[in-house]
Design a binder for these strands. Structure first.
Lengths: 161, 161
DNA sequence: ATAGATTAATTCGTGTACGAATCAATCGTA
DNA sequence: TACGATTGATTCGTACACGAATTAATCTAT
């Protein structure tokens, strides 16, 4: 009898390829940035702040796709390194306003240059990158607006529901 | 004067789109699997073991792209749930042999069905998925065979090197 | 036969990620 | 004016990820 014919091949799964590439990117950027305590997550936060100007922590969360409770400690650490400035909004004291600092911009520019140089050698065409980026963004939107069905499992030894 | 014209736009970066999609996938699969203590990482491990048959932990690491030191505690936990079996290879006692167990195959089949059903509603065409998957795999290979240049930073207040 | 090199897995420490809960501030309604 | 609802940020606990170090087993060269 067939060996679970309906199960997909790992390498054919979009999710798995994103998952595996994300890990490779993590290792790659840790290798590039790790010696100076910099990370890709910090890079993304700086890029977003530099691109769009000062914004609240929740606006940065929306722009980067990272939950606010992950950004809060990350931004605190970045502030302690003088990469960014974080101040309470006097008009609404619930809100933290964030802005990139000159040192942060220096680090961002150096990191961006390094990333650009490294990627120039990868041999991935701009057309491929643009096409893939579009599908990834579309997929993310679809995911973010869908509530998945939940996995249920039978307890070992019990009849399945 | 221009505002850092050479810096890329966040949304145009392949890396950022992979990063952001990976997080959305994490939330999506946690929502689908989290109530029963299952995760996407476990799903990937089961899929790999089911697809390729019994293998060593380092072979599973190579197949999934996850470092062995992450797999070791993960597989131990999966073994404690009777999803997989882990035994020392009598021919080489450095090596752990892994195999999926019947309960693991049950969970895998249910999870795969659920994932397939959920994804059917995403509206991403099989052609798009195939094309994107190819570029992501190619990018991963390029990354894994490249040593990046390292970021260096000037200390605050010191002249740049 | 032995010792050094290499391999496979494990543990430790650290980083990022998120669901849930909590707290303070603001808003809207009665 | 007061109270409940909502919002924004923070903390906590847990999961996964990886570099480095460690341990045990195997291999290779002398």
């Amino acid at each position: 009898m067939d060996d679970s014919p309906q199960l997909p091949k790992l390498d054919d799964l979009l999710c798995f390829n994103v998952y595996a590439l994300h890990h490779s990117l993590g290792r790659f950027y840790h290798s590039a940035f790790g010696d100076v305590g910099f990370t890709y997550a910090k890079f993304v936060a700086l890029l977003a702040l530099n691109e769009s100007g000062p914004m609240s922590l929740s606006a940065l969360s929306a722009k980067t796709g990272v939950e606010a409770n992950s950004l809060s400690p990350l931004i605190k650490k970045m502030a302690s390194f003088e990469l960014v400035e974080r101040v309470r909004d006097p008009e609404d004291e619930r809100r933290i306003q964030l802005a990139i600092l000159p040192f942060g911009r220096t680090i961002l520019e150096r990191a961006s240059k390094l990333v650009e140089d490294n990627w120039a050698q990868m041999g991935i065409s701009p057309e491929d990158i643009a096409a893939v980026t579009r599908v990834l963004a579309k997929t993310k939107c679809a995911l973010d607006t869908t509530s998945p069905r939940k996995l249920t499992i039978p307890a070992p030894g019990k009849p399945e529901d």
